[in-house]
Simulated assay, not measured.
Amino acid sequence: MNELDDSHSRYALSDPIKLLQPSLLLIEDDPQMGGILMELLEDDYRAHWVTTGKAAIHEFGMNPYDAVIVDRRLPDMDGLDFVRSARREGITVPMLMLTALSSTEEIVSGLDAGANDYLSKPFRFEELNARTRSLLRGYQAQQQSHAIGDWTFKEHRGLIESPSGINIQLSPAEASLLKALCINPDRVFTRKELLMAAFSRDAGEGTIDTYVSYIRRKTVKGLIMTVRGKGYCLGNPMESDPI
Rank of each mutant, 00 (worst) to 15 (best):
N129L: 10
N129E: 11
R131I: 03
R133I: 00
L135W: 09
L135M: 13
L135Q: 05
R137P: 10
G138A: 07
Y139W: 14
Y139E: 01
Q140S: 05
Q140D: 02
A141I: 01
Q142V: 00
Q142L: 12
Q142D: 08
Q143V: 06
Q143K: 13
Q143P: 01
S145C: 11
S145F: 09
H146T: 02
A147M: 12
A147G: 04
A147F: 06
I148K: 10
I148Q: 03
G149R: 05
G149K: 04
D150Y: 10
D150S: 15
W151F: 12
W151T: 02
F153K: 06
F153H: 03
K154A: 10
K154L: 14
K154T: 07
H156L: 00
G158F: 07
G158T: 10
G158L: 13
G158S: 12
I160G: 03
E161V: 15
E161G: 04
S162A: 13
P163W: 12
S164R: 14
G165I: 12
I166W: 13
N167Q: 13
N167H: 14
I168L: 15
Q169P: 10
L170D: 06
L170E: 07
L170R: 08
S171T: 15
S171Q: 12
A173Y: 08
A173V: 09
E174L: 01
E174D: 10
A175W: 01
S176Q: 04
S176W: 00
L177Y: 04
L177H: 05
L178I: 09
L178P: 09
K179E: 03
K179Q: 04
K179H: 07
